[in-house]
Amino acid sequence: MAHTDGARGGGSRIPVGELRPGDHVALLHASDEERAAVLRGFLLGGVAEEHKILYLVHAEGPDGPRELLRECGLAALPGASEGQLQVLRPADLAQPSGELAPAGPRDPAALLGSLRAAAERARGEGYRALRVTGDLCTALCDGRDASRLLRYEALLAEEFDHGGTLAVCQCDARRCDTAALDAFASVHPRSVEVDPLVRTAELVVVRTFDPPGLRIEGVVDTASHRHLRDALQSVASVRGDVRLEMSGVEFLDLAGLRLLMTFARARAARHCTVELTGVPSHLLHVITLIGWDRTPGLRLGAAHAC
């Protein structure tokens, strides 16, 4: 199932578990929970793939690996080798060998050179690739540095075509204005998201965070009711209202629709609602036909053409 439509911060989405060397993607998040969930996948995936992992701190951020793991809700990084994860300021990038003297923390060309050197070092240390992430938000929100940052991103994009490094550029959408977000999105061909809760040939269900909920794509029938029920269960304890985004639903049978209604009732019992958005118009017709539009806790958003 392709993740193609309506991705925030880029033309398409890629699950964090599918990132490969050469990928350069945006993590445009609006909640700490979302950032932590993606970074968890980024770190665990890095260990599994035997990648060197660099976390670049521009202004504010974790002081070291321990702090980073805590932010991501991880007690440890099982299987990681000594020094596999490093938290650095960009200026520190060249420090271990001292070969490169960075011209400044925000100089695009210098930073790129440092990154390239770090990638070579990582390979020298026996890692299969380098994966880098960092929060670019602070720079973006400073109008003077935004253009420099974007130049840097453009250079990065070229660099990553060669395939030895992968990068996840974080941006906290709550801290940037629309113009900055658009600029950020324009230089990232894809955005990264959490790994799907469900990924079968027929059905993909992805946890979403702003607002909290699920994105349901593909086919729900007898073969996948169990998957949908489990996915709904995973957001059952979310505080507040939940949104189920359904514009990618190709087919949903009556029993599957009932699972959504049962979920809404359970939310209503906790004084919360479930909003269904992008519901195919024929399913809105069916919901109304049965009288399920009066289900407690259910809110129906705009329809989606068949």
Binding site: D253, H282, C306
Partner: peptide
Amino acid sequence: AGERAALAVLAVHEAAD
């Protein structure tokens, strides 16, 4: 087409199911 085709598919699916 559109909604009517989707409803036809749903009806046949449910009968077969």
